[in-house]
């Protein structure tokens, strides 16, 4: 009796990370965006509305305060960086939710797509959504409010990398929870980041918070970024210490998020919840 495994085409390659499969998922999302113009408009709509609102608030405050008059861009800069954080997380989680909404997750989970490939594809899709949603708004802020976030130069890269890492780490935990708990956890994708907003001090310094909350604020990587942004706008100095601290924390957050995701996925496999992706 022969019990040797049957040869499977490209079996060795199948177990390896496949850029082709990552590309397939990115293509799938690109098709979605290009076939559905309301989705593309929605990506730009909210950042624009928010930027206009905070831009006018900033104009008003600057007209009545010499401090804010000398710190142009404090609100708009904070908002644009907040949008990088929010959109990177939502882009990551919403791309996954698209699969749940379209009842396509079963097809993907039973395909050769590896979890690691899915994660990398979600990261790439998040970057595409971020570019579509935030770049036009940053350009619009230049003529509207005289604020050019691109003028931050190299520090902007440090801000961007740190915020995107935080967004992805939170997005990864959210999709792990979605896999384990199903659509009942959908609200997390929309709302979890807003829980961080008051604590990460997007529009005000950490010193504004009650003393009891300040250690919690410093434990969140985005807080370091927003403080760093204010250091540039107000003091015209780049705080490398803040960025290094944020980066170190983000590395830990990403590791923790990956571990949590794989544990939640294993839990979903044990509980059978991958086949029950309803509410």
């Amino acid at each position: 009796m022969t019990n040797a495994p049957e040869p499977i085409r490209g079996a060795r390659a199948a177990t390896a990370f496949s850029p082709t499969r990552v590309g397939a998922m990115v293509l799938r999302y690109w098709y979605l965006l290009s076939n559905s113009w309301p989705r593309a408009i929605e990506l730009v709509y909210w950042p624009t509305v928010q930027m206009l609102t905070w831009g006018f608030v900033q104009l008003y405050v600057a007209q009545n305060s010499s401090f804010f008059a000398n710190a142009a861009g404090l609100f708009v800069g904070g908002l644009l960086l907040w949008d990088v954080l929010l959109r990177s997380q939502q882009g990551f989680a919403f791309a996954f939710l698209e699969e749940l909404w379209s009842r396509n997750l079963g097809n993907l989970l039973m395909s050769p797509l590896r979890p690691s490939e899915f994660i990398v594809a979600l990261m790439a899709i998040s970057m595409i959504r971020l570019a579509i949603g935030v770049i036009p708004v940053t350009l619009l802020a230049i003529p509207m409010f005289g604020y050019n976030i691109w003028g931050l130069g190299l520090p902007l890269i440090a801000f961007f990398v740190n915020l995107v890492m935080t967004g992805w780490a939170i997005g990864l935990v959210i999709i792990g929870i979605l896999l384990r708990q199903g659509m009942g956890a959908e609200a997390l994708a929309w709302s979890l980041m807003f829980l961080m907003m008051p604590i990460t001090c997007v529009y005000y310094p950490v010193a504004t918070l009650p003393a009891i909350l300040q250690p919690l604020a410093w434990a969140l990587p985005p807080t370091h970024v927003f403080e760093g942004m204010r250091a540039i706008v107000i003091d015209h100095s780049f705080r490398l210490d803040l960025m290094a601290g944020a980066f170190a924390m983000n590395v830990l957050w990403m590791i923790g998020a990956v571990v949590a995701f794989y544990k939640l996925l294993a839990g979903a496999r044990r509980a059978g919840s991958l086949l029950q992706q309803g509410e």
Binding site: R21, E98, S102
Partner: peptide, 18 residues
């Protein structure tokens, strides 16, 4: 996915299965 055409869907899955 409902928003993708049949050809687009088959292309995506074809690439997933290489």
């Amino acid at each position: 996915p409902h928003r993708l055409t049949v050809r687009q869907n088959l292309t995506v899955f074809g690439r997933l299965y290489r």
